[in-house]
Design a protein around this nucleic acid. Structure first.
Lengths: 116, 116
DNA sequence: AATCTATACATAAGACTTTTATGTATAGGA
DNA sequence: TCCTATACATAAAAGTCTTATGTATAGATT
């Protein structure tokens, strides 16, 4: 588990990346997927996740479908067409950003390797 | 220039990494170093930088030396012994974190390459 | 039958980080 | 003389995330 400060700013890119790959997901599923993908190093808290999903819906980036599982209701989130565009842009920016960070933190590597 | 949200949480690791490599630096020098290292993609604002430096000093991570350049005064920052330890730990955590992020955002790469 | 854990949603107060705006002052170039 | 660069600093506001709390169903264990 990473210290909290380090994860700042990555929640939105992570969620959108998952939605880009999985077509549709519900909130709890997202928290589990991140836990699994990162071997428990990143745990998304509900207090951060749900407000962000609601905000993305209000912005038209995602839309929702409710589905009943027994007596419980699941709320699935999926990208809208414009959301897909924005997501693609954001992810490209994020990947570029990570390459820049890598350049700062591993300055001995030859440019070109690792990103090709 | 990246959108602001993306850079969140990286300011402290960046500053400490620079101080680890450069022995001592002053505030303005840090802003320029980051601009140069990232081809203007990341610009550290003074409103974020100076309060953080003051906080790091209050925590005993860095110490300062004032130096007069003509009539102006420069304030150099350098890592304390305990600050060096904390910095090393933070940077290792950050590098690990970046590898985890890379795993999420570039899932097709074979593990082992790029980090070896 | 009762209790614990997992699933599944949600909100609200507070902490923390960063942006935006503003201020002061010296130095150098146009 | 004026503009830009150098060099520090603070303070209000915005924004993000943590921590805490709440509700409820479902399944497993005691």
């Amino acid at each position: 588990m990473y210290s909290k400060e380090i994860i700042k700013g990555t929640l939105k890119p992570i969620i959108l990346k998952l939605l880009q790959e999985n077509n549709r997901m519900y909130g709890y599923e997202i928290t589990q997927a991140v836990k699994d993908l990162t071997a428990d190093k990143i745990k998304i808290t509900e207090g951060a996740l749900y407000p962000l999903l609601h905000k993305l819906e209000a912005e038209g980036v995602v839309f929702t479908e409710k589905e009943s599982i027994g007596k419980r209701v699941r709320k699935y989130y999926a990208l809208t067409p414009s959301g897909k565009e924005k997501t693609q842009e954001l992810i490209e920016e994020f990947v570029d950003f990570m390459a820049t960070m890598k350049h700062i933190f591993e300055p001995n590597l030859q440019p070109g390797y690792g990103t090709a």
